[in-house]
Design a protein around this nucleic acid. Structure first.
Lengths: 182, 182
DNA sequence: GTCTATAGCCAGATAGAC
DNA sequence: GTCTATCTGGCTATAGAC
């Protein structure tokens, strides 16, 4: 996940796993096979985690607050997953469809219904569910992918960055809520 | 830029350039050397482009509208730059500092001044300049990096996606302006 | 199942003619 | 400066002992 298919070395993986290169090949017949296994495992774990939050029964604003709280915490604790997912969804997008089709839940419909409820209560302005989700995912993900730019421009140390990310669980939620509030 | 340092092949690059592999080595002594040249060129071009918009003399809301208009257009026309930049700033962050130091412009100070002006006019609520910039960059970049997820979830075709991106030059600007408006 | 040793291949880099 | 031919090292994958 850290070095990508081309950059990773079977020897290095074997060392980390505490076994010989030959044993690694004994279990996974080839490097490609091992990679495919990791791919399926990561996506089957990550996607439901992200989108499950949007399916909960809470009102829209609470879903937004929950999303930033949980998604940012997950990214904080699994930093190498991020670049892997971004790189791979662009390289092999069709596998994504397969995984999503298996889950068989109408996440977009659920979000649109939540938005409509909130619009009816006069709380928010209308917005397409897919745009709201995209904006929320963007705001939580890019701060990690672009962290070096952010740190350099702002002259922010690693400790201050962690503190800022922690604050942003809250401020990003309020940013989005303000943006859609009537 | 498309395949990364590990994935790219000197032969392939030579073919594309219409020369032999030996000639390619004659000009750039090694693969690493060629890569470093591309790295410096891309970053020296991209960063000033992004941050130059924030330095203009316009009022804050116009800067926000300009940013989404120009930055999204640039990303649309240079799709391969995106992943390259994101991967490399995480792999070799110190080169970034060097490039930014050379430019010697206080972009953060400029943005904070703009925000303060707008706050004084009673137009917007206070927000840290670095957070505003980070949010704007996030919203414009991730829609490209995460396009496959977005297309799959929303059941969006390639043509519809292009149309949507075009619309989002405007809607994202208004999203951000609403978020910070008093 | 796990290891050491090695086969076989491929890609970066160089030699040397033109 | 540009090419073809070749060297060299490193990596995936396998053979074969234990």
């Amino acid at each position: 996940m850290e070095k990508g298919l081309d950059g990773a070395r079977m020897q290095e993986i074997a060392d980390e796993a505490g076994m010989s290169k030959a044993s690694l090949h004994y279990y996974y017949r080839s490097k490609q096979h091992l990679f495919d296994g990791i791919y399926m495992q990561v996506f089957s774990d990550v996607l439901p985690r992200i989108f499950g939050i949007f399916m909960s029964d809470l009102p829209l604003c609470e879903i937004i607050r929950n999303f930033f709280e949980m998604h940012i915490e997950f990214l904080k604790q699994n930093p190498s997953i991020l670049m892997f997912v971004m790189k791979e969804i662009n390289r092999v997008p069709h596998l994504l469809e397969k995984i999503l089709a298996e889950k068989d839940v109408d996440i977009l419909g659920a979000v649109n219904a939540k938005v409509q409820e909130a619009v009816d209560r006069g709380e928010v302005r209308p917005i397409r569910g897919e745009e709201l989700m995209l904006n929320m995912v963007s705001l939580s993900i890019f701060q990690f992918a672009g962290a070096p730019i952010f740190k350099t421009i702002g002259g922010i140390s690693d400790e201050d960055f962690d503190k800022l990310i922690e604050e942003r669980k809250k401020t990003l939620a309020e940013f989005v809520i303000s943006a859609i509030k009537r």
